[in-house]
Design a protein around this nucleic acid. Structure first.
Lengths: 183, 183
DNA sequence: TCAGGATCTGACCGATCGGTCAGGCATGCT
DNA sequence: AGCATGCCTGACCGATCGGTCAGATCCTGA
């Protein structure tokens, strides 16, 4: 019955990604994941220290890209920051559609877990950049609406090809963002 | 220890609204609500048949307004449908900020419950109207991003006055919606 | 051949969940 | 006084959760 190490490990990871995307992190039990893989719950906990570690490994690639985007944002201001934030986040959201779906609505609670403590600050900076670092309520509100809406759209439109989704979202963001330095 | 009938009933409802808005429906136990009210869990279940009934009574006013909006949408097409949908939903979302926050991310699972079965269809029609009944992917994507984003923004910006939030959201929607009948 | 590590499992644990139930207690009607 | 009714509670229920643990099984290198 024993399989190669990485095989079962990867199967659990893939099954978790599928289940989390459909029923959310809290809504998915370790038993659910084990059932989908075809192993026991104890096996899942042999390969992963706990449920949170499973989620962390699942989100690691997306978080890495988010970190990169955060670095690209440093120093940029005004319209330049908006453009980099828009292009970067749309690209990230489309590429990591499934990972985004996992966080659906559970963002606030999941951010409390130590493994994701820094994500909150990064997403705050991202929102700030998309608002062109403006403190006008209109700009801040628009930035939040767009970031949250894009996440939801990427999770929902699973059937649309990457290119098409990315183009549509980018066009939307560009006309929706409140322009800075109004004449 | 006994209080007037409606008093405890209302207190439970108010406490549930507060807790649900912070920790979500699933993330809030009947014990949590009882603790906030200062009564026993059994008392909560004396006033409400079950947890779902408590949620249903909490959401009833918002659902009523959503139904009204749905009726106003029938027969309208193109830009007129977009405008009615935009104005109606922004107004609804701002007025029922707390109720919107309750649904945060738990929308899909909550819609499965029989008490909310019809909400899915209404929100589909609302999204369709905001897209100007266009079948272009760009229009449909923009409509979803806006509806989801507005919900999230209303749940998040609890400190901004109604008028200001409504104005900012409406301005955003008007410049973000993909125009129909392009020349 | 055999020791030892990697893999996997069933049984089990304490905690918490939504929900039930018999009964206590105050109030008001007859 | 006696009874019914509405309100409230502690104790309890079965189910499920994440997580632990001792041991069975398999593979590999000496």
């Amino acid at each position: 019955m024993a399989r190669a190490v990485s095989e079962t490990h990867g199967e659990i990871l893939a099954a978790a990604a599928r289940r989390f995307a459909v029923t959310g992190y809290r809504g998915t039990s370790l038993q659910d994941i084990a059932r989908e893989v075809g192993c026991s719950k104890a096996t899942v906990l042999y390969h992963f220290a706990n449920k949170e570690a499973l989620l962390a490994e699942l989100m690691a690639p997306a978080i890495g890209v988010l970190r990169d985007l955060d670095e690209q944002l440093t120093g940029r201001t005004g319209a330049a920051a908006q453009e980099v934030a828009a292009q970067g986040f749309v690209d990230l959201a489309v590429r990591f559609r499934r990972e985004i779906a996992v966080l659906r609505g559970e963002f606030p609670e999941l951010l409390c877990q130590p493994a994701f403590a820094h994500i909150q600050q990064i997403s705050d900076r991202l929102r700030d950049a998309l608002a062109g670092h403006s403190d006008r309520p209109g700009a801040r509100i628009a930035a939040l609406v767009l970031l949250a809406g894009i996440s939801e759209a990427c999770a929902e439109f699973a059937d649309i090809p990457d290119d098409e989704l990315r183009a549509a979202l980018l066009a939307l963001v560009r006309r929706a963002v409140e322009p800075v330095d109004a004449p």
